[in-house]
Design a protein around this nucleic acid. Structure first.
Lengths: 143, 143
DNA sequence: CGTACAATCTCCAGCGACTAGAGGTTCAAG
DNA sequence: CTTGAACCTCTAGTCGCTGGAGATTGTACG
């Protein structure tokens, strides 16, 4: 397998070219060798590493977590418990987020149901926004 | 009711001082009158408007949506259908997000279940990350 | 009235994870 | 050898704040 240009790597892994350069800049991807004209050339290892990164991002892991997961994966003899803990921590975050969003969803649905579709002056949507006490639930800030 | 300093407004509405100044900067809150020494002084109208904003943010509305909702609420004679549409659009976004996060949650749970808690070299977590095809679901990018 | 000090002011930078654009260079096909 | 797509670097912008520096103002107390 011959070396890949950044564009070929991009198409193969489905990660945009500027994103690949960004990953190099923040040290997630190693700086690859260059041609005479200073263009990047990637090998099979880079394809794997970038796939790993892409997949972890799709699963919502933060870059810092991915950095740790990558460095763990480089030491196969070590116990995998640290990786376990990273995933568990992330799962808990996802669960908290789902719970918050479900509250939000219910609040938004009620607002729409209660709206009589008349004028703004008597619109429940506007009224509820203006007065938190009319809400069904307590909701903290999302995101 | 006497005028409020930015700190008093902040405590009353539970929005941080720099955030209040930021809202003024982006035109969400009107620039209030100032004292001789150029300190801001707020009235009852600002308390309501900022409460509205805070509540809408808690419900996950973007600043642009809040801008529209605020300008709608200033015209009580108009039909409330535009407000309706903004809320519906937001609700749909929330629902999409919940669905994606639920997929993620399931994937993360499977990863944790499958992990034998041994060494990294045989860890399912690392393997799944390295190879998307081992996933139960298709998942696009979250957020 | 003077002093101390908390609160306020403006301006600027940073967060996370990219994304986009300008302006210039290199590669590869024909 | 020419053309033009792809590449290069650098900078700035996204969203919604948040924090800090360094200067000024308001207010309570003696």
């Amino acid at each position: 397998m011959t070396d890949l240009s950044i564009g070929e790597l991009s198409r193969r892994v489905a990660v945009k070219v500027p994103t690949i350069r960004y990953y190099e800049q923040i040290g997630l991807l190693p700086a690859p060798p260059r041609t005479e004209g200073r263009q990047r050339r990637y090998g099979a290892g880079d394809v794997s590493r970038l796939s790993f990164i892409r997949h972890a991002r799709e699963l919502g892991f933060e870059v810092e977590a991915i950095r740790e997961l990558l460095s763990l994966s480089a030491r196969p003899e070590q116990p995998c418990e640290p990786a376990d803990r990273i995933v568990l921590r992330h799962l808990e975050g996802v669960e908290r987020r789902i719970a918050q969003l479900a509250l939000l969803r219910s609040e938004l649905r009620h607002m729409l149901e209660d709206c009589r579709h008349g004028q703004v002056g008597e619109c429940r949507i506007i009224q509820v926004l203006a007065d938190h006490d009319q809400c069904r639930h307590e909701h903290g800030r999302v995101e």
